[in-house]
Design a protein around this nucleic acid. Structure first.
Lengths: 252, 252
DNA sequence: TAGTGGTCTAGACCACTTA
DNA sequence: AAGTGGTCTAGACCACTAC
């Protein structure tokens, strides 16, 4: 025999299936095309539906497929690159791909966020909820925590409803001069509310971007943004330094 | 009745189970403690093992559990923050938490990498494999692609074996002055080789960090590093500026 | 050898979308 | 109403680890 492999490694069926499907996606399908349904596919490959689904789940995790209940499984477009580099707060409704639909409440943050903010336990902070759109699709849901100390000039007269308060808080925050920021990215799964806003099922994989904004030696605000992991590629373009070839370059 | 919920939302069992388990982890368990086995847990909660496993998978994805075949399920420690900010190539064997065990071959990269490198199709490049350790555990596996043009002074006399070549390539790369870099983070699943080096099963979720290094107006190298998503939190700490009030800040 | 998690099966029913 | 993916079950066997 060929001695190509000692076949000592019994590759799981779903893994092999995933490989076969991935190749098929490259050659026989175009973006947006719908695949046969799971029962047919499973029968075609001679496996149980659960096994077929394990392969599909992996491909969806890698951003190659998109599955929607009641509709079907389609070939996903390449992930969109979303820039996560911001030197100042983005203004809702301003510009190309940005944050939208702000909402604001005042609440006591979780212990973890409270620790990042250096606030007293049980101290309530302004909590702004925003949604980030890209190409008409929601890509991220953010919770922005702003201690009252960061927005001292917030008009107290108006105790407006959500959206108006959100705009006020963002506007006041804008006035602080930002000393710097601090970012972390990790994998998480979407909670119920985030999932609904991102048009995904609860538990969908997300990239959680936690940002601390510094100003005047304090932590002025903390942002926790959850990006759809299936459709997003987070880009950090801002690290290009002033090159010797004359004009300073900046990605994007 | 309480009218608290219209119970119109039949929460999936595994989701509820996950919530219950997450609370139990916080209150009744300590880091490193082993949980009862899956069959017992499933029986205790009155669900099928597959359903219980769905909950455990989510918790593992969130970095709260660690499961090892043949051993059991243990409570995972908090994720370790690994700094992904580098102004120059890290030197293997140099310093605290760094890259180790370099290996090098010469090969034609995938089409996607070739595109990032601006190389000719079918042009072979030096391919350095490194492993990043943190707290004695492997956290990332990297492939560093270096076109020959970036290391022109590489001693051609020595056509050394893997590790020696790797050191040579890294040393030569070190001599280039780095104009800047370009980073992207996305979710992926570990291939067979990465999985083995990271001590995970194939298909394990990873954070793929793709970095382009620029020098002299060209792309000098491309790095594709896959970080264990279950144990790592990628940090970008370098964005804090030295600004005393109101000096120039980069980025607009 | 015993016990663990990983894979796989063949069903069933549910929630959702579309027509 | 028909068709899709999502959830769930009750088994079985396999691969790995540790004793």
């Amino acid at each position: 025999m060929g001695t190509t492999q000692l076949e000592s490694v019994p590759e799981p069926k779903y893994w092999h299936l995933k490989t076969v499907l991935a190749e098929a996606l490259d050659t026989d399908f175009t973006v947006g095309e719908i695949l046969p349904n799971e029962r047919d596919l499973a029968a075609r490959f001679g496996v149980a539906r659960a096994t077929l689904r394990q392969a599909l789940e992996q491909l969806e995790l890698e951003g190659r497929l998109q599955r929607r209940r009641g509709v079907g499984t389609t070939v996903a477009p390449p992930r969109v690159g979303v820039d996560v580099t911001t030197s100042r707060q983005d203004w809702p409704g301003t510009g190309h791909d940005a944050w939208q639909a702000a909402e604001c409440t005042v609440a006591v943050p979780s212990a973890a966020v409270g620790r990042l903010l250096d606030t007293e336990t049980d101290e309530a902070v302004h909590t702004v909820r925003r949604l980030r759109m890209s190409h008409g699709q929601p890509v991220a849901a953010e919770l922005l925590y702003v201690p009252s100390a960061s927005v001292p000039d917030l008009p107290v007269i108006e105790a407006p409803s959500g959206p108006a308060l959100a705009r006020s808080v963002l506007r006041e925050l804008q006035r602080l001069d930002l000393a710097g920021q601090d970012r972390a990215v990790e994998l998480g799964s979407a909670g119920a509310v985030d999932a609904k806003e991102l048009d995904r099922l609860p538990g969908a994989p997300v990239l959680v971007v936690t940002t601390r904004y510094f100003s005047e030696g304090r932590t002025a605000a903390v942002s926790v943004a959850t990006y759809r992991a299936d459709t997003c590629r987070l880009t950090f373009g801002g690290d290009v330094e002033i090159s010797h070839h004359g004009q300073e370059r900046r990605a994007s």
